[in-house]
Amino acid sequence: MKTHLAHLLLVTTSIWLIPIPLAIAKPKPAQSVTVVPPQVISPAAALNRLIVAEKLDASWFTPAFLKAVDKNSDVNALQMQRDITMKLGRFRYGSYKSVQSIGGSKYRVLFERAEPDAVVIKLAIDAKGRIANLEISEKNKPAPKAPAQAAAQAALDKSFKTNTRANGESSPVLLSLKQ
């Protein structure tokens, strides 16, 4: 038994003498979270974003502005109005080019086929960079002269009454509209 005990003692002491590699986890540095405050953009940048963005975001507008546009403060109503306005603008003036400040809170909206002041927007933003007010003014085109307007009305009336186009051919569309 002494031999077994001596052998066990030798094995035990040799185990303690062998350096065992230990993996000690180093404490990780504290995770630092950088809080970036929302960036306030310039009025010109806000206006440009309003024009070119595919989808509008409600956070770009003050609650009062959204409420004025739609009683439910729905940004989708504003999206629809913006889309229609831009389609009309492209139809009348060509593609949108840029926004240019003309002093104070007024900006030109430049299009490829429009004179520089064809569309002027007065814009107000709040301290957070949200659109608080927007007024669009478009240079008025001269109204048609009375004789030209009367001639156009007479041609339209004639087309509906006789079901004929301006070239004298019958119009199945006008006929079906009348029915």
Rank of each mutant, 00 (worst) to 15 (best):
S98L: 11
K139D: 04
D117T: 05
A154S: 04
V120G: 05
Q100L: 09
V120I: 12
S137C: 01
V109S: 00
I131V: 10
S137V: 10
A146R: 14
K139P: 02
K158W: 15
V109R: 04
R165A: 07
L110H: 03
I136A: 08
A148R: 12
E138V: 12
K161A: 14
V99L: 03
E112T: 13
F160K: 10
R108Q: 11
A152R: 15
K128P: 12
G104H: 01
A146L: 14
I136P: 07
K158L: 14
R113N: 14
V109E: 02
F160C: 08
L110R: 08
I131D: 03
F160R: 08
I125V: 13
P147R: 03
A146T: 13
N133Y: 02
A118Q: 10
K141W: 13
S159G: 07
A143Y: 11
D157M: 13
N167Y: 02
S105W: 08
A146C: 07
E115F: 04
R165L: 05
K145Y: 11
K145R: 14
V99D: 05
S159N: 07
G104R: 00
K97S: 13
T164R: 13
L156E: 10
N163A: 10
A150T: 02
E138W: 06
S137N: 12
D126S: 02
E135D: 14
K97R: 15
Q149S: 15
K161V: 07
V99W: 05
K158F: 15
K141C: 02
E138A: 11
E138C: 06
P144A: 15
S137F: 06
T164Q: 13
P116E: 05
D117N: 06
Q153K: 15
A166Q: 13
D126P: 02
L134A: 05
I121A: 06
A151K: 15
A152I: 15
K141H: 12
E112Q: 13
P116D: 04
K141R: 15
A146K: 15
I121K: 05
N163E: 11
A154G: 00
N167E: 02
P142H: 01
I131M: 10
A151R: 09
